[in-house]
Simulated scan of single mutants.
Amino acid sequence: MTRGDRPWHQQAWFRIFWIGLVLWLAAVGVTYWTANANLIPTIVLLGSFLVPVTFASWSFEHSRRENHLTIERILAAFLVGGVMGVLGASVLESYLVHPSTWMYLVVGLIEEGVKLAAVWLMARRLAAHSTLDGIVLGAAVGFGFAAFESSGYALTALITVHGLSLRDLVSTEILRGLLAPLGHGLWTAILGGALFRTARRTGHLRLTGALFASYLGVSVLHALWDSMHGIALALTLVTTGAQWQWRLIDLGYDPRLTNQQAVLLTVYQWIGLLAISLIGLGWLRRERARGRREEAVTGTASPTILGAPPME
């Protein structure tokens, strides 16, 4: 029995989320009331890290696994792996990403590649590997990446031509917080599971055809996610575009959408994001099921957590 089997209100992830949410709301309220710009870093950090830390904790608590992952390794994966991923992606994208039809696919390949490399590094010297361990470690790296990336987007939204915008900062953090569980953490969890499943069979972390296929798959999901606005815009114009809008496109201008088209664009975009999320969640569920079967076959016992004895 794991901690994840306890009532949800007694689990650490639940306390982390609600305490963090209350503190973030308090920071936003006090900043709005006092106009104290010194509190902005507090809002950025709390808002950017709240959901990623919550879900990293949730994935750790809800996985039956051998006692190979410690809280120290999970924390290192979140912080070190997350920073390594962000820095590596930034350097590679500055050289390799250029405006083109395939731009978002290149971004997906780069970011999923650097996160996979970070998981690989964090998995060194583990005594053994299991698919469920890989999912947890991958989720930690992915959510760390998401947290640091979101803090950058939040700061960018804060700075406008009219000065600092608390409203734009808060709205950006809310949106990215809602979408965080369906992005980087999910995709890297899938990659971590695939990496560890290979290592479980061979005894070594290595690149195989199955792992490479998983890498390409999550990169495509990543690319579709990032390009969904453009895809939704294209679908909107194909289904409802007027002749004058197509003429503007031929001249190299972006056509202005009508109110009805703007609504349809939003609908298409959210339907697309939902479809991508369901594919990713279904894929992760299959990975978890494989991990459960592996443990059942090998007779793996439930782990101790933070040095505590196994729960009966």
Rank of each mutant, 00 (worst) to 15 (best):
S150A: 15
G203K: 09
T198L: 00
F78V: 03
T202N: 04
S63M: 13
V106Q: 12
E66A: 12
L126V: 10
V141I: 10
L75I: 14
L96W: 15
H162N: 15
G185D: 04
G152C: 04
I135P: 00
H98Y: 11
I110N: 15
R197D: 03
E173F: 07
G142K: 02
H184V: 02
L75W: 14
S90Q: 11
G85A: 12
A194F: 03
L158I: 04
S63E: 11
G193F: 00
T131E: 00
G108R: 06
T198F: 00
R176P: 05
R64D: 13
L137D: 02
T198Y: 00
G144T: 01
L191C: 03
A123T: 05
F145K: 05
T156I: 10
E173V: 10
L116N: 06
V91Y: 14
G183R: 05
D168W: 11
V91P: 08
T70Y: 08
F143V: 01
L205C: 07
R124C: 11
I110K: 08
T172G: 05
F143D: 00
I174H: 06
L195S: 02
T202K: 08
G85Y: 10
G185S: 05
R125C: 07
G152I: 08
E111D: 12
P181L: 04
S130D: 11
L182A: 15
L137T: 03
L179N: 04
A146R: 01
V136R: 01
R65P: 01
G82H: 09
L69T: 09
M122T: 06
F78H: 03
L69M: 10
E66Y: 03
E173I: 14
A139V: 00
T202P: 00
G193H: 02
V83D: 03
T101I: 13
L75E: 02
G82V: 08
A77C: 09
I74Y: 04
M84E: 09
R167D: 15
L166Y: 12
F196V: 05
I174N: 04
G108I: 12
G88A: 11
A127I: 09
H162V: 02
H68Y: 13
A123I: 06
H68W: 12
A123G: 05
G152R: 08
E66T: 12
I71N: 11
T172K: 12
K115Y: 09
A127Q: 13
S151H: 02
I110P: 14
R124N: 12
S151C: 09
S94L: 09
A189V: 02
R197H: 07
H184I: 03
E111W: 10
L87F: 08
A146S: 11
R124K: 12
G81H: 10
M103C: 11
L105P: 14
A127M: 09
S63N: 06
K115P: 13
A89W: 05
W120Y: 13
G177S: 04
V107C: 12
A147K: 01
L79T: 14
L105W: 15
L87Y: 07
G113A: 10
H68G: 10
V161F: 09
L109Y: 10
L87G: 03
L166H: 06
L79K: 01
R65Q: 15
L186Q: 05
L126A: 09
K115N: 08
S171C: 04
E173T: 09
G193D: 03
G183F: 07
V106C: 11
A157N: 11
S130C: 01
S165E: 05
L87E: 06
P181T: 02
